[in-house]
Design a protein around this nucleic acid. Structure first.
Lengths: 169, 169
DNA sequence: CGAGGTTAGTTGGAATTCCGAGTATCTGTC
DNA sequence: GACAGATACTCGGAATTCCAACTAACCTCG
């Protein structure tokens, strides 16, 4: 997963130089985008590694956390999808998997017979707790940054999320 | 892909509140990580949308740009993998696809018979150029930020890449 | 040389994600 | 009350990614 032989230079800075040399547009946006993609890969690798002993992926872990944080410990699949920005079929798949692992149970909605609730089990809560310890211990792969820098990232990226209509400003 | 009804609040800020309430560790890192994941989804959706008319994904586009920027317009598959942080099998798949599209050709390495070179074709160069225009026009989905903010993101994320061993500082 | 280890790339299989389509249920309007 | 449209979820299929295992070619050192 990691590179046996890392590059000797900053590939993104180099790409930006070339981009500008060719007179292509928006080099700063290109560099930031590519950085986001790269760091996404890095963080995902670190987190998935930490979650492997629990037989969880980041997607399933995130779903589990969402349920653990919800008031009733249960949510409609559709609501999970919009929270996690996932396609309905992906939610079905994730809940299928978590259910097979005994971490979640499908429950009927009290009034709407169309909707299915995913409810976290006791086992699910135990696993989230342990998994969270493991993930936190890795610092999410971004522990080089101090809290101030982390908050800067969160704030900058929040603007992008607002612009994308993720939520109102 | 996009949410029909966006959330009415900042889901990440809310998650952070809950995270802290439970006394879980590294809330700032959690918030930054989740922000990166979310923005990654957003940017990828925007870029892939812009690339769809060219029958390209971001991964294939990135590979094509890499070849266009290379001195000879050709690189060993392995080198492409380390540059793009991709598994060898993924590179094989991507080059397969690009070759079928006529944007790339497999060439023999002059001295090492093990390695295969992927060489961008004239058609490939034309398509990269057009695709880049289309992608740039979207501002990569992050055009709300000015160049200064974009550079802040790039700089902050660079620290993470260095820490991950992406390249020496 | 030549045996053992390393490196480059490919193949088959599992997991994940999305899209299109389909079924069931609810809701608004006449 | 009934019908048209919207909403909630699931199923089948395509694409992508990674892992494990494999073949072919190179390289080191005795």
């Amino acid at each position: 997963m990691s590179n046996p032989r890392p590059l000797g230079f900053d590939a993104i800075a180099e790409a930006r130089r070339q981009w500008e040399t060719r007179g292509w547009d928006a080099p700063a946006a290109m560099a930031a985008t590519t950085s986001i993609m790269r760091v996404h890969q890095i963080v995902l690798a670190v987190v998935d590694e930490a979650l492997r002993p629990f037989d969880l992926t980041f997607a399933r872990y995130e779903a589990l956390v969402l349920l653990a944080f919800s008031r009733q410990g249960a949510l409609p699949l559709g609501k999970m999808g919009s929270r996690l920005m996932l396609h309905p079929t992906s939610v079905t798949n994730i809940v299928d998997r978590l259910e097979r692992q005994g971490l979640v149970e499908r429950t009927a909605h009290p009034t709407d017979r169309r909707t299915t609730l995913a409810a976290i089990t006791e086992d699910g809560r135990r696993v989230v707790s342990k998994a969270t310890e493991a993930v936190s211990a890795t610092g999410f792969g971004i522990s080089t940054l101090d809290d101030d820098e982390l908050d800067q990232i969160t704030a900058l990226l929040r603007k992008i999320r607002v612009d994308a209509g993720d939520f109102p400003a």
